[in-house]
């Protein structure tokens, strides 16, 4: 007998009688008066940065100003001027020197400061992890209260890879002292359009 059969047989034999699956939609989840304000507060608390902008020009200006014309700022947003476009043919390893990556996120979550991003939006999976600084753009009316609503939006979307990112990469493994920039970005800016 293969291990597969052995395991499945043992599990089948030992699992208890079928128990019902609870209804997640029945959870009486928290609602915030102002999801944008809540999102901003939480993101700042976890080391992120929120910038309200009127249009993409403001994003360009902010990037020019903050990164001071640094080399290796790249984006996957076609309409964003003043920042080089990602060459999607590139070998992922070549992204190791990217200073800033600017990408689109689908929506944000007020309760925990996370944004949802899928590979289809930014092409090279490692990009938001390998860059020194990460910036994402969301629309103000795409902020939901909780993770339940987040999964209501995602539903059965067919992505290859998707990720919730909440703030910069961090660690507190050395005596519980919080350090930003463990392996991934040292900062995360969310532009809210």
């Amino acid at each position: 007998m293969s291990s597969r059969e052995k395991i499945l047989n043992a599990v089948k034999k030992n699992q208890p009688a079928l128990e019902p699956l609870p209804d997640v939609a029945a959870i009486n989840a928290i609602q915030f008066d102002d999801v944008f304000a809540q999102f901003g507060t939480v993101l700042k608390n976890i080391g992120g940065n929120v910038v309200e902008v009127n249009d993409l020009n403001k994003v360009s200006q902010y990037v020019q100003h903050t990164f001071n014309g640094a080399q290796n700022c790249i984006t996957t947003i076609a309409d964003l001027t003043g920042v080089s476009q990602l060459n999607i043919q590139e070998d992922a390893h070549a992204l190791q020197n990217v200073e800033l990556a600017v990408i689109n996120a689908q929506f944000a979550v007020a309760e925990n400061g996370a944004v949802w991003i899928t590979e289809e939006q930014y092409k090279l999976r490692v990009l938001p992890f390998i860059c020194n600084h990460l910036a994402v753009i969301i629309h103000k009316n795409n902020i939901v209260n909780t993770m339940h609503q987040a999964y209501d939006l995602i539903q059965n979307a067919d992505y290859g890879f998707g990720v919730f990112i909440a703030g910069p990469s961090k660690t507190a493994d050395i005596e519980q002292s919080l350090v930003l920039g463990a392996h991934g970005p040292k900062s995360m800016t969310v532009f809210v359009l």
Binding site: V24, I27, V42, I46, V109, E111, N112, G113, A114, F129, T146, M147, H148, A150, Y151, D152, Y159, G160, F161, G162, V163, F164, I165, A166, G167, P168, S169, K170, A172, G184
Partner: peptide, 27 residues
């Protein structure tokens, strides 16, 4: 959709963070 429940509980229970920085969905 059950992830909504578990991801709300995991980091809060572990370290008091509202969520871990990364929750990567590999498909």
């Amino acid at each position: 959709k059950h992830l909504g429940v578990f991801l709300r509980l995991l980091a809060r229970s572990a370290t008091g963070q509202p969520v871990t920085t990364y929750n990567s969905h590999f498909k």
